[in-house]
Amino acid sequence: MKNAATNVKQQLFEQAAEMLEANPQDLISRDGKIFVKGAEGKSLTVSDVARARLFRHNGAPIVGSGSFDADSVLPDATRFGNESGAYNYGAQAAQVQVDPETGQVKIVQFAVASDCGTVIYPLGAEGQVEGGLAQGIGYALIEGLQIDEGRPINPNFSDYRIPSMRDMPPLQHTFADSYEPTGPFGAKGLGELNMDPTAAVINNAIFDAVGVRVKTLPITPEKILRALKEKG
């Protein structure tokens, strides 16, 4: 993202330099405006520059792309390696209620702490936490592709349920105060982090609540009720 944005900025400055009759390296941008350092009075907006670039002879929209590949070492024959240049750390806790007569699990509340390095865009990062947790809850309690003679028999969202917005428990979350030296602005990935511990967290909470441990996913109420009956 940072590399792509840097690339776009360079293209904008090249176009703006022509329009302002200046050198690209003398330009700066602030509050959506581009101007020559020290001459803020004579400025162009980003949209003016982008439009001028699009509608000039041989014009084109400004498109930038960038990629980032953290240092990693492919596993060798002994499976030693380093799959990522930056590792995430996270912790989750769940409070659940289990209905002893139906096996139904109600998640009363969830607490999540995530380490994703510098949080650049808090709203987007929170969305990643919530989305990851929703997928983790689905993985723990609901989801599973069912195959009959080689064919999936629940290949749509009516039969293959995923948690909906209204199924989400109250969630408290926090980000670790952290800086990842290899990432852009000290950031590192976040998306899948909160799917990883959720099934174990929920299973531990169920065990703590009613003393049974279901060892296959999804942990359906039917499996819990069966385990409760066996326990007696």
Binding site: T102, G103, Q104, V105, L141, I142, R161, I162, P163, S164, R166, D167, T220, P221
Partner: peptide, 9 residues
């Protein structure tokens, strides 16, 4: 209405 998978089931 017993819907343990999702409220929208």
């Amino acid at each position: 209405k017993f819907t343990p998978r999702s409220i929208e089931d």
